[in-house]
């Protein structure tokens, strides 16, 4: 096992190294090496809170004779994961030229159900029907992953009860509301043997017996009995477990997270290197507008088909040159 950091010199000039241990449609587990904890943690935070997705944000209820209150149902609707592939081509409503929402900045979904039988009836995410113009044919479609193919349960109706409503799904990030979070959970772990003593494990009588080793314990050397404590040691291996809520593929979450943090940093470079008073932009703009028009972040994702789709930024302003091919290396920064 070559987990000695000194042995990593053959890697691309000692930059971050990734080892994927599991990847499927629900989660991706990977180990990040040769990075420090701030680097790893910033990626974790960005994946949790700042990746744009789409979620129901406005609900207009035409008829609700169910036992649940309108606002209760509206809240449940907001939490239903919607397919977010292609959301980069959707505008934020606040950046759009329209009055409140339009097909450039939202997806409309309708729900109409009436219990006509003698038994109670379940209304679930499957019954939400996207209507009207969409940027692509999957954006905003409710995510259905269960065996029965119904999706999340929204409410139940007794005989003769009816629910009829229209929803507007908008683009947003989880920093505004957790319903926009792409990940159900992000596992983050380092130092499985607690050699660095960042953890102070509580125990009844024997910490070894009461704290079973993590699945990553076998990836690292266990501590040697009587070994002196290394005061200079810092964590260097981080174990991520990115689980999707369904709206983005798990590897897409990682790729998008990297993109978002690069945009953040590139926006700062732009601000610091442009001369004062270059009138660039002032006033509220969504985060991805923050970067300059000539910024090449170098790295771009291509989940969602063959990448390189043309973006359809309705309103003028700054355009983001994403979607192109990866071209880091030579040009760009440094």
């Amino acid at each position: 096992m070559d987990y000695d950091p000194m042995a990593m010199d053959d890697a691309e000039s000692l930059g971050p190294v990734v080892k994927i241990s599991q990847a499927d449609s629900v989660r991706v587990k990977f180990e990040l090496q040769n990075a420090d904890i701030s680097f790893a943690n910033s990626l974790r935070r960005v994946m949790l809170g700042e990746i744009p997705t789409i979620a129901i944000d406005l609900v207009e209820i035409e008829n609700n004779s169910s036992v649940l209150a309108d606002e209760f149902i509206a809240h449940r609707l907001g939490l239903i994961p919607l397919n977010a592939e292609g959301v980069e081509h959707l505008l934020y409503s606040r950046d759009c030229d329209c009055e409140e929402y339009c097909e450039h900045c939202s997806v409309r979904l309708t729900l109409h159900a009436r219990c006509t039988g003698y038994d109670n009836m379940s209304v679930s995410a499957r019954d939400l029907v996207p209507v009207g113009e969409r940027i692509n044919q999957t954006l905003g479609t409710p995510i259905i992953t269960d065996k029965d193919g119904t999706g999340s349960l929204i409410l139940k109706l007794r005989p003769d009860q009816e629910i009829k409503l229209e929803c507007i799904a908008k683009k947003g990030i989880a920093k505004e509301h957790a319903k926009w979070a792409p990940s159900a959970a992000i596992g983050f772990e380092y130092d499985p043997h607690n050699k660095l003593r960042h953890l102070d494990l509580w125990y009844e009588s024997d910490p070894k017996a009461e704290w079973p080793p993590s699945e990553y314990a076998k990836w690292e050397e266990p501590p040697v009995e009587g070994e002196p404590f290394d005061f200079d040691a810092v964590p260097n291996h981080f174990y991520f477990n990115v689980e999707t809520a369904g709206n983005l593929p798990p590897d897409g979450i990682v790729a998008e997270g990297i993109k978002v943090i690069q945009q953040k940093l590139a926006g700062l470079i732009h601000e610091l290197t442009e001369g004062e008073g270059d009138g660039g932009y002032d006033g509220p703009r969504s985060p991805e507008y923050n970067s300059g028009p000539d910024t090449n972040y170098g790295y771009s994702t291509s989940y969602g088909g063959n990448g390189g789709n043309q973006s359809a930024w309705g309103g003028g302003g700054g355009t983001t040159p994403f979607g192109g091919q990866t071209s880091y290396g030579g040009g760009g920064w440094s």
Partner: peptide, 20 residues
């Protein structure tokens, strides 16, 4: 530092895609 970090995250992204 900002430029180094953008490059490092770029490398992370490429490493990730390669591994995947």
């Amino acid at each position: 530092v900002l430029k180094e970090l953008v490059a490092a995250y770029g490398q992370l992204g490429r490493e990730f895609q390669k591994e995947l």
